[in-house]
Amino acid sequence: MSNNTPNEQDDDNKISSLYKQGSIETPAKHINEKILHQAKLSSNNVIPLSIKRIFTTITSSRSLAIAAVLVIGVSVVLQIQFDHFDEIMPTSTETYLDEQILLENLSTDNTERLLSAPAQTSEAFNNNEEINTLNSSIPKKSAPKPSMKAYKPTAKTETEAKAKYDRQRHERYLKLKQKREQKQRLERKPQDKEELLKKRLEKIPSTALGISSFSSDLDNCNNFNNKECLASSICTLNVSNNKLNCQQAKNHCEQDFSQSDDSIESCQKKGKCEYIVSTCQCNTNGSCECEDNTPPACLLIEDDEQ
């Protein structure tokens, strides 16, 4: 045994070298395989990093996300519009059919107003720019036959049922249209309101609204200012407690009669109606002052005998 070597560092190096030459042991092959197999089994439960990153890249990509939202949004809106208007918008052929059916089947006095409605509505459709725009955005059906998918015959005859079905379609269309107009009216400025009202009254004759439309316009009269009310054919500006109030047209004289635009003749033509002459001065904000605090009106003549 050498206790003291001249150079301990050399001895240490030799010891290290000797030790490393003898360090040749390696684990058995079956142990390697076992451990690597176990490692693979353990990693099978883990989602690979590459897949994770691809998913993250896709989901975090702003342009892709925006594109996806736009595509989905636009397609949903188009689908809703298409479905909705396909159901409520009569085509020109359908309107013609409406007219024919009504001419054939409806003959009572009360329905005379309705009799003229489809024809006038058809005209109104052609004049209304908004509807024309919408019509152009909706793909036209190739088949000229009217859609009868919602038609269920409940009336005695087929023609009556068709007429009923078409009336319902027409009423639903009018309600929707009025709602949209009301919304637009609330959004517009007062001066725009005035122009819009005039335009609407010119383009859509009041007769085209039909009887059922009056119930839906009950609330509209309260929303009108004095000027709008005078121009309206479905509302009448009355005096109560020395104040001007816009109310729903009560009788056939007031209905379809514009206090500011219609003439004496149009009032008298209605029968049993009398025209009250008066003049009103209206401000730009829509409030009016009338002669003797009474606006012009088409009043029903009370029958003394009855």
Partner: peptide, 27 residues
């Protein structure tokens, strides 16, 4: 880290790198 994310080849490399020295240390 790669192995934690499912890359088994990373573990193979890691194992081979330390296999012999660790075995001898234990032995």
């Amino acid at each position: 880290s790669l192995y934690c994310n499912g890359d088994t080849s990373a573990f193979d490399t890691l194992y081979n790198r330390h296999r012999d020295s660790l075995y001898r240390f234990i032995l």
